[in-house]
């Protein structure tokens, strides 16, 4: 009797096994259905079906309209506004692949290889070749070209550790660390970002080839500020040639939206 009373007073051990079973099934299941990348959407405007048929009664061109267009080709970006063309932003396209075998990255200029008359695509260390659909990042390195024949020199720019290019007081890109020190005042492409450079920020600065996207973002922001009163101040048309990668279109659309042109239409470059 005494023994049994003693037993009943002992806290009973919970049998956790069924719960463990449940958990070990639930957790893998939830991991498989949970996606850790947040998906969003980019909206584009498309003319209605009736507008798609080119009529003869084209409306008179509006003198006040901005008619902003960005054309993407394989070697330059061109901004056209009010019928006038801005200087082309020349760039050199660089493809970066990430090898599946060792996670190593390979960067090369695709047009260089074609020009050399072969398809000597660099291979991964384990010998596997890279496929067009495995491009990890497409870099656009801004080139400065003095004439049509000039192959161009790659422009560099000072970047922060969060990948934003620095601008000086004249709204020009900072090409290198020369003249920049702790305490200098620099801004980035974001509005109202001018501030003093702290030592830790200074140490993380890197000099890299300037991205043509940044060049585009800067010009578009200036256009948006200047023509804020235009009736179509929020509209932009993105033109691209047939081979432009979707990634580049999205990149250009992002810069346009960040600059304030959020009504984006797409059109095709003839030829």
């Amino acid at each position: 009797m005494a023994k049994s009373r003693f037993k009943s007073e002992e806290p009973p051990e919970l049998d956790l096994l069924p719960i463990m079973n449940l958990f070990s099934i639930l957790i893998p299941f939830l991991i498989t259905i949970a996606s850790f990348q947040k998906l969003g959407i980019v909206e584009v405007n498309l003319p209605e079906r009736s507008d798609m048929v080119m009529g003869e009664d084209n409306p008179e061109p509006d003198e006040q309209a901005l008619n902003l267009t960005v054309a993407i080709t394989d070697s330059y970006l061109q901004i056209v506004a009010r019928g006038g063309m801005l200087p082309k932003i020349f760039y050199k396209e660089m493809w970066t692949f990430r090898c599946k075998s060792d996670g190593d990255t390979i960067t090369y200029d695709p047009y260089d290889l074609v020009d050399r008359g072969g398809s000597q695509i660099p291979k991964c260390r384990d010998g596997s070749e890279t496929d067009k659909y495995e491009i990890d990042v497409i870099h656009l390195w801004t080139l400065e070209r003095t004439s049509e024949e000039d192959a161009g020199t790659i422009l560099t720019s000072l970047y922060s550790d969060t990948d934003s290019a620095y601008l000086d007081d004249n709204q020009e890109f900072v090409p290198n660390k020369q003249g920049i020190q702790v305490g200098s005042r620099l801004s980035t492409l974001a509005e109202g970002s001018r501030r003093e450079i702290k030592p830790d920020v200074f140490n993380k600065m890197t000099v890299r080839p300037r991205s043509a996207y940044d060049e585009l973002a800067k010009t578009l922001a200036q256009i948006h500020n200047r023509f804020i009163d235009a009736p179509d101040a929020d509209n932009i048309i993105v033109l691209a040639d047939d081979h432009a990668a979707f990634d580049k279109i999205i990149g250009v659309m992002d810069r346009a939206r960040d600059a304030g042109f959020y009504k984006i239409s797409l059109a095709k470059l003839g030829g």
């Binding site: 998906l39 969003g40 959407i41 980019v42 584009v44 498309l46 979707f246």
Partner: peptide, 8 residues
């Protein structure tokens, strides 16, 4: 109304 899916 066409939208393109992207990773944010």
């Amino acid at each position: 109304n066409i939208s393109f899916a992207v990773i944010m």
